[in-house]
Design a protein around this nucleic acid. Structure first.
Length: 573
RNA sequence: CGGGAUGUGGCCCAGUGGCUAGGGCACCUGGUUUGGGACCAGGGGAUCGGAGGUUCGAAUCCUCUCAUCCCGACCA
């Protein structure tokens, strides 16, 4: 590319709306332009990098036997009604009607469409496995788009869907994709962690996220200091046995007057007890059915864990009216004993270890003390319902504690099971001639977010520092004195040689002063700058600057091409 | 959706009742420059987010509205 005619405008100043580094640098380097909130034009520099990421994705997926397809952005409501998601996907799904008043939506993801596509072709187990992917624009009407390409509304995503005849085969596919993702992000030059993850609205019950480590990341990751355990903080398990207050014996259960004391702090202060001796009793609505969740008073309820434990679509705190109806008391005095309505009681494992606990009495201004599981009540089920935090003990090994990092989720793999294939009758004849739903997995990579994450992880005060594999151009040739024909001729010759040698080269032939070109080159972040100046060239040399290290060297003109080919090969290893 | 803030040329900002709305960056022309975002001179570009109102007079005050950003809730 000759920069003199490039569609490129760099900026010294940052638009004030750009808050994170990747957003600022992409603006300044002339890579993106905002069209509306969370909706961007990708300019040539950005698109070149995006295409390179896509090429890496395609290569690695094809290696694993995936096949590329392309599905529509516009999807009919019927399919979404069939899967049940038309109702509960919520406002993030952008819906509209066509001229015949039929309902449509812009695809935020493609489980419905692919399942429909596959069921029309799938007859026999002999056809499987299939793993189909596409790279395409998605639209999600995010409540609060932010941080440029990190959380846009329209964004480029690679989504893949696997179909297998059995759970075992599906999990094999899951592992193949896990491995492919590891390759892909390694090749993109990113430092990342694969972590246990919650499944959210996609459904299913096994998932990993690929998190690029960066302080600006929106996700918290907890990983063990000792073993390999790592999980999204919303999913991170908590070690099972933690509390055993070890009281000598059961105390009698008594009702105590606690006027106006509602919160854990208020009650524990008032009764002069530790928060961990109290039981936090929260009434949740889980897919519209109320349930009581019990956790130790010093812990926080984790709604994500409740959602996956109950395999629920929607989990929310019950409204005040519901709580008062169920407890027969004001808000703040709920407990497991004496509820006016019989509802499901789910207790965190750690509640089991607490003796002579304190909880709400289901009577306004009263709490119960000396409550004991077994004698006074019994939960319907136990589970892990609390938030994990940094410095908690590792749930897996004996030695480690959890450490927190920030991460940018660039990819996620899900084992789905038969959630969609059953809802949408995506069946095949198995080895015994029986109709069986296909076992599915789905796998996403945010392509634009990967680009943004790469910048978050690779930049300095001057600008972007592209990893070689995803740089828009691998090298920029910078003739400094355009009036010196020796300089311009040498630059042109090298430029042609580079292109012939398969090097992505740009030539900065703009009539600008050297300082301007240096700053632009640093900002745009070409991995290598070839600087051609009259004085050095008179000695038959050109100067090379390596962006990542700042290292500069002089090299004979005749050796430049070989050098750059070698340097690129080394960088891509 | 709750809280906070901001809309003045492509970008950053000044102007908070009074003349023809200013500066810097960017852009165009001419000249001088040419190894880390040059300098001088000239020039083009704005119905001050939009609508309504108050006023002799509104970018400035009031009402409504739209858009954008931040925090939260929410979210593969």
């Amino acid at each position: 590319m000759r920069l003199s005619s490039a569609f490129l405008k760099t900026m010294k100043e940052v638009p004030k709306e750009a808050q994170v580094v990747s957003h600022q640098l992409m603006f300044r380097a002339g890579m993106i332009q905002k069209l509306a909130s969370g909706i961007y034009n990708y300019l040539p520099m950005a698109l070149r990098s995006l295409r390179k990421i896509e090429a890496i994705i395609r290569e690695e997926l094809e290696k694993k036997g995936c096949q590329e397809v392309l599905m529509p952005v516009v999807q009919p409501a019927e399919l979404w009604k069939e899967s049940g998601r038309w109702e509960y996907y919520g406002a993030e799904l952008l819906r509209f009607k066509d001229r015949k008043e039929s309902d449509f939506c812009l695809g935020p993801t493609h489980e419905e469409v692919i399942t429909d596509m596959v069921r029309k072709n799938l007859k026999s187990y002999k056809q499987l496995p299939w793993n189909l992917y596409q790279i395409q624009s998605k639209f999600r009407d995010e409540i609060r788009p932010r941080f440029g390409l990190m959380r846009g509304r329209e964004f480029i995503m690679k989504d893949a869907y696997s179909f297998d005849e059995s759970v075992e085969k599906s999990l094999e596919n899951y592992q193949l994709m896990f491995d492919a993702y590891t390759e892909i992000f390694n090749r993109c030059g990113l430092k990342f962690k694969a972590v246990d993850a919650a499944t959210g609205a996609i459904g299913g019950d096994k998932s990993h996220e690929f998190q690029v480590l960066a302080d600006s990341g929106e996700d918290g990751i907890l990983s063990c200091s000792h073993c390999g355990y790592a999980a999204n903080e919303e999913k991170a398990a908590v070690k099972k046995v933690e509390y055993n207050l070890d009281s000598a014996e059961f105390a009698p259960m008594e009702e105590v007057h606690t006027p106006g004391r509602k919160s854990i702090e208020e009650v524990s202060d008032f009764l002069d007890k530790e928060p961990r001796e109290l039981i936090k009793s929260m009434i949740y609505t889980i897919d519209e059915k109320p349930a009581l969740i019990l956790v130790p008073g010093n812990k926080e309820v984790n709604e994500t864990k409740i959602q996956s434990f109950f395999n629920a679509n929607i989990v929310a705190l019950a409204n005040d009216e519901t709580v008062e109806k169920i407890t027969g008391a004001d808000l703040g005095f709920a407990g497991p004993i004496g509820l006016k309505e019989k509802i499901y009681i789910a207790a965190d494992y750690r509640v089991d270890g607490i003796m002579n606990m304190i909880c709400g009495a289901n009577r306004s201004d009263y709490h119960l003390t000396g409550v004991n599981i077994g004698r006074d009540f019994k939960p319907d089920v136990y589970g892990d319902f609390i938030h994990a935090y940094a410095e908690d003990d590792c749930p897996v090994c004996e030695a480690g504690t959890l450490e927190e990092h920030r991460g940018i989720e660039v990819g996620q793999v899900f084992y789905l099971g038969t959630k969609y294939s059953e809802a949408m009758n995506c069946n095949f004849l198995d080895r015994n001639g029986k109709q069986t739903p296909a076992v599915m997995g789905c796998y996403g990579i945010g392509v634009g977010r990967t680009l943004a994450a790469a910048i978050e992880q690779n930049h300095d005060e001057a600008g972007i520092i592209w990893p070689m594999a995803i740089a828009p151009y691998e090298v920029v040739i910078m003739p400094l004195q355009l009036k010196d024909e020796n300089v311009t001729d040498t630059a042109d010759t090298l430029y042609k040689e580079f292109l012939e040698a398969g090097i992505d080269a740009a030539i900065d032939d703009r009539n600008e002063r050297p300082g301007f070109k240096f700053n632009d080159a640093d900002l745009i972040g070409y991995p290598v700058q070839i600087i051609i100046g009259s004085k050095t060239l008179a000695e038959g040399m050109v100067e090379i600057k390596i962006r990542a290290t700042g290292e500069k060297m002089k090299i004979n003109v005749a050796e430049v091409q070989e050098w750059i080919v070698d340097f690129k090969a080394e960088a891509l290893k």
